[in-house]
Amino acid sequence: MNGTSHEPAPILRVQGLAKRFPMPRERLFGPRPMLTAVADVSFDLTAGETLAVVGESGCGKSTVGNLVLNLLAPSAGAIAFEGEDLSHANAARWRARRRDLQLIFQDSRGALDPRLTIDRQVAEGLDIHRIGAPSDRLEKARQMLDSVGLGGHLMGRYPHELSGGQQQRAVIARALVLEPKLVVCDEPVAALDVSVQAQVVNLLQDLQRTYGLTYLFISHDLSVVRHVADRVAVMYLGRFVEVASRDALFSQPAHPYSRALIGAVPAARSRHGRRVQPVALHGEPPSPLFPPQGCALNPRCPFATDQCRQERPDLRPLPGGGFVACHHVENLL
């Protein structure tokens, strides 16, 4: 207890995270073009909260999740988990730390080994980290499966014998049996039917409450995000363009891109009786291989000025809370 800080220390602190992928040479002996998937991403996660990362497919949001879990090595930036700087941790240290940082994939069928029954797969994490006596591990795995709603005879089944929703429950059990602190949910419900989506989202929220989990929730589905997130980060072409509390973002998005995104959701237009003025963007997102100069959105943004075409706006705090990367945000609100 130091008593001086009012804010709780973040469980995860990410600073200046970047990922560049080398692409194949266009000419023999030519330079290798670099694809910038993620650039200059910084955020804090407080224990127990849910930060959603939203954006179109290809914007780099899944890459952020993979970088946080070190499934990809970052090109730059620092990741600190519970105060421990993991950017320079070696493979063994990371393997030990993985117990606290787990992942839930979108494609639950693909995330399960087709050759193993699900109770065995859930028990595997316990085997890897040598948790409990070997004889108790299967029993513990079965308790976890029971608590995600896969009880009785379903436990001994192979993945292909389960429905999509049941598979996703198995994936969740597999991640949570290690009692992690942070879970990266990479589009956890995108592959499910809408009726099943709600069940799985509710399950994730129940588990968050029960185990005090922190979620980094990656999704393109704004209606799901609105349901689960405490804060939302909007991503465009590898960068965060706006970070705001859920309510602020959905009622009054500040960045032109957020306004386009949220204005496009029918439900967002009527909540609280306020209508988000949708912004119409021109064209398609540019290729991340050839990002535009200045603000990445400038070729598509109706408010773009010369400044936008030359200077890249930094993410800066807004008076009403939240952070936005736009030169003209004050005039637009």
């Binding site: 499934l71 787990q102 994939f105 693909g110 995330a111 399960l112 080994d113 595997e124 994490g125």
Partner: peptide
């Protein structure tokens, strides 16, 4: 994905 899941679990 199940290979990456195993990696995320800490499997060597």
């Amino acid at each position: 994905d199940y290979i990456r899941t195993a990696e995320a679990e800490g499997a060597s």
